[in-house]
């Protein structure tokens, strides 16, 4: 580590932190810039957890426990940010616009983490299921057409699917999860 970066690793790390600083201060305001380390950690673990499927392993985000854990953390962050900024009045917002809307508002509040977790899980899982189906379909296609047991049609063709389902979907869902976390937390802390 040097004050003036000369190594490649340090330049990349500084660029990453600066980019995330800009994103967080642009979305949540400069006063909430202390959320940057959490958001960056979440972003990187989501990206690398999804992209690990590129080397043939099962991505960690294709398991509902991972994404639900992240969304429960987000839920508690929302509640803590709300109570910190408004005190107990934060829960008076559940009575808006009228008192009998209370059950509906509670369900709405609880559905935030559920839908966030399911969204990330569903996207990655659907990609995994479709890729597996294409692989087994190509393998039986080679057996039918060429009557060999070597599934050489599996080479190359699924790579185009992987481009969308692994690369694009993984990067997109990581960005969206972080973005939604920032939006909800900053909305609660206003």
């Amino acid at each position: 580590m040097k004050k003036k970066p000369v190594e490649k690793k340090q330049i990349i790390a500084e660029k990453l932190v600066l980019m995330m600083d800009n994103l967080v201060s642009g979305t949540m305001g400069v006063k909430n810039i202390s959320y940057t380390p959490y958001i960056l950690t979440l972003f990187l673990s989501s990206i690398f957890g999804s992209l690990i499927s590129l080397i043939g392993l099962r991505s960690i985000t294709a398991d509902i426990n991972t994404t639900m854990t992240w969304s429960v953390i987000t839920f508690f962050m929302i509640q803590i940010a709300g109570v910190k900024s408004k005190g107990i009045k934060h829960y008076k917002g559940l009575m808006e616009p009228m008192a009998f809307m209370l059950p509906l508002n509670i369900v709405g509040e609880l559905s935030t983490p559920v839908s966030m977790g399911f969204r990330h899980f569903g996207n990655i899982m659907a990609g995994m299921v479709i890729t597996t189906l294409v692989y087994s379909g190509l393998s039986s296609l080679t057996t039918i057409i060429f009557s060999t047991s070597i599934p050489f049609l599996q080479v190359g063709i699924p790579a185009f699917l992987s481009l969308y389902f692994d690369l694009f979907s993984g990067l997109m869902q990581a960005f969206i999860f972080c973005m939604l976390t920032m939006v909800f937390v900053s909305k609660a802390s206003d």
Binding site: S115, F118, R119, N123, I176, M179, L180, V183
Partner: peptide, 13 residues
């Protein structure tokens, strides 16, 4: 992107 993600949730359910 955020709006599309929210619109997607019914499909994900």
């Amino acid at each position: 992107l955020v709006g599309a993600a929210v619109a997607e949730s019914t499909g994900i359910y």
